[in-house]
Design a protein around this nucleic acid. Sequence first.
DNA 1: GTAACTGCAAAATATTTGCATCCTT
DNA 2: AAGGATGCAAATATTTTGCAGTTAC
Lengths: 142, 142
Amino acid sequence: MSSARQQEAITLLKAHSLSVTDGRTDILLLFISRKGALAHSDIEKKLGDRYDRVTIYRTLQAFVDKGLIHSIPSKDNSIRYALCKDDCASGHHHDHHIHFVCKTCDNTYCLDEVATPSVKLPKGYTVNQVEMVVSGVCQACQ
Amino acid sequence: MSSARQQEAITLLKAHSLSVTDGRTDILLLFISRKGALAHSDIEKKLGDRYDRVTIYRTLQAFVDKGLIHSIPSKDNSIRYALCKDDCASGHHHDHHIHFVCKTCDNTYCLDEVATPSVKLPKGYTVNQVEMVVSGVCQACQ
DNA sequence: GTAACTGCAAAATATTTGCATCCTT
DNA sequence: AAGGATGCAAATATTTTGCAGTTAC
């Protein structure tokens, strides 16, 4: 089971100055294998017997802080997280892609190939970050 | 204190088939007077001595259900709500505007004059709803 | 008068914090 | 060896549910 993915996870952790522990590796593996986004509760469902709920909270927070994953805004108080692309670094995220939430399978995907369109705001606003979440039906569920 | 705004609130409630009670009127007044969006906790801070927390939950839910307010997705597990425009009706919301979160004053505004740009998704996706949240610095905080 | 709204109590759920112990570097 | 990560306990916060009393229509 110490596979290529396992190696990938370890490399990613090191690259983001996170110490390599079983918990972090396992949680990161979830993100690597399953391409969709994960909420805290999803992770708890899958690993809750192996790791404490608190550890999952702290791990996700550490991952966000170090630019390994980013959070996706939601309307239902259950933030989902997804892997960042290479151009995210500690401190500043660059999620210039949109997110898609499928109403049928309830998965959330990063559509890396679709950039967030630029918006023109009224005079006086400074734009810092743009988040776009599209909901509908995904390819698999059509 | 029974002012024009009070009348506006009552009219709005009736127009959305919500019965007119003190609690609903007061909460709606908050949305009318303050143009920014409000989270549950904001409302509780302002009216928590007058109304039960549970009533606030239920009132917000009723407002959303009847198309009086809409929720704005967020990254921090604190959903904010804002008044809907006239073209929102019970059951189906039409928030085709973008939302702006100011990092300085932490207010959230609906920019009704800025429509959400259309996005082109890869083949196979059906788009149902588009949410756009822009963060930065607002006019007042520049 | 009836249906709907409200407050209170309580349950269920989610999140944070402190601390002692263990593990990574 | 030292600093950071983890688990456990517990505190805190958030959201939901049931029910009895009250109010709007």
